[in-house]
Design a protein around this nucleic acid. Sequence first.
DNA 1: ACAATCAGCACCAGATTGGTCCAGATTGAG
DNA 2: CTCAATCTGGACCAATCTGGTGCTGATTGT
Lengths: 144, 144
Amino acid sequence: MLRVSKLTDYALVVLSRLAQEAPGTVMTAPRLAAETHLPEPSVIKVLKQLSHSGLVAANRGAAGGYALTRLPTDISVREVVTALEGPIALTACVDSSEDVCTMENSCPMRGRWDPVNAALHQALDAVTLAHMAHRESAYAQGVR
Amino acid sequence: MLRVSKLTDYALVVLSRLAQEAPGTVMTAPRLAAETHLPEPSVIKVLKQLSHSGLVAANRGAAGGYALTRLPTDISVREVVTALEGPIALTACVDSSEDVCTMENSCPMRGRWDPVNAALHQALDAVTLAHMAHRESAYAQGVR
DNA sequence: ACAATCAGCACCAGATTGGTCCAGATTGAG
DNA sequence: CTCAATCTGGACCAATCTGGTGCTGATTGT
């Protein structure tokens, strides 16, 4: 099925919700969870990770919350997936991997996934948060 | 990480090995396992699934084994992934899914993954077994 | 001071995955 | 005809991953 984890899916939903507000708008985790109908603890976990990787800014204290650090047109799906799941690659065996491959040079797949991974990167780079955030177009797509 | 399962990876390796022989060449499961340095039981399991979906033909009995049913140039990576993991989609929430989505119309992501999935299909369709089967070019890529 | 909010763990139950095993069915060779 | 080689199909298990929960502490506006 080539799944993306549920947490990553949540991240896209939450970020899309944030993207619907004016740039810089701060929303609390409980509110984001309520408005997206997602389980609050998981939303919190996701926001922590997104904050770590700098996609959202966290404001502590009373009247705190989260806000996007960039414009929705400037955040690609690939960045979000990478933030939640690490470097995008279909297998552990890619050139950028530091794992010691037990098969070393005898591995029959050395480098062969590269074109597939490249195509994948390109595909995920092409879609931004802004593409996923507009309610009307999304519903129109859903009906067809 | 957007992983493809290890079994799927094995499938690509095994099919690539078959693709290196003349069309119609029959190889037994143990031999394929030995030559690819993969665990034999898993190779067997993979071959069963590939046989199910018609990508390889199984010949029983003594002197039996497996052979590709089509030319390597005619088998895309997408087909292999689909054979092992079912329909390719990043989330369970795609239009073709028959699951009853508990969020129904309120789901904020309805249809939004579609462009990403489409790009993904295209990317995996573009790479064939033949692309992954040629040893020299693969090594050249690995070195870079 | 106090309440609201984020930070960072540690933890658990369920699902998935990779791997193992075994009792058949089929087929070619001696 | 018998036997060995080979695929078939299912059950099974241990390890890992994942989503979800809970708690304690730090920060900050009122």
